[in-house]
């Protein structure tokens, strides 16, 4: 019998090396997708993940990448559970994750998620003003949004009016 004895901290460190399939510079832990790790009996691990967006096509890839990362290190029984509540928010993104995004040329979420007093207030037109976003290339905040939607559901398109470079912005969500 070669029961592998792992602890939760070790599993977290392994998961910290699993890249997000669409933005490989940050890990699934940086993104705040991994919500829990539970080790049962030393050789069975349950990893709880939460989807970013309901229709995010990367979720299935993330699930198999998590499974693969643990299998590769000898964990025989891997269970990946999905948890919807509380809903994922960019507030869970790590500071190091935000720094890595900037280095990669993607502006990280510029503010914490806004809570509005009522449902009606959240969709009033004045509530939809875009936040001030710093250019990941030159640091200027003299930027403007060109499209609310970008190459993936989590990003918007911006351009810098100082250095004239276009860039992706990881939306607050």
């Amino acid at each position: 019998m070669n029961a592998l004895l792992v602890d939760e901290a070790t599993v977290w460190s392994w998961l910290a090396e699993v890249p997000d399939p669409e933005i490989p510079v940050i890990s699934v832990v940086d993104l705040g997708i991994v919500r829990g790790v539970a080790v049962q009996g030393g050789d069975a691990v349950t990893v709880t993940i939460t989807p970013t967006y309901s229709g995010c096509p990367a979720m299935q890839v993330i699930e198999s990448a998590v499974r693969e990362a643990l299998h590769r290190r000898g964990v025989e029984h891997v269970h990946v559970a999905t948890r919807l509540s509380p809903a994922w928010t960019t507030d869970w993104m790590s500071e190091s994750g935000k720094a890595k995004l900037t280095g990669y040329g993607i502006a990280p979420p510029a503010q914490t998620v806004q809570l509005h007093g009522s449902l009606a207030a959240a969709v009033a037109r004045r509530a939809s003003l875009a936040p001030t976003v710093a250019c990941p290339h030159c640091g200027s905040t003299h930027t403007e949004m060109t499209s609310q939607f970008g190459s993936t559901p989590c990003k918007a398109l911006y351009r810098c009016l100082a250095c004239r470079e276009p860039f992706d912005y990881f939306k607050c969500h």
């Binding site: 989807p51 967006y53 309901s54 229709g55 995010c56 919807l84 559901p153």
Partner: peptide, 10 residues
Amino acid sequence: ALDLLGQARM
């Protein structure tokens, strides 16, 4: 469309 598809699935 993608958001709605994900919601439909749930």
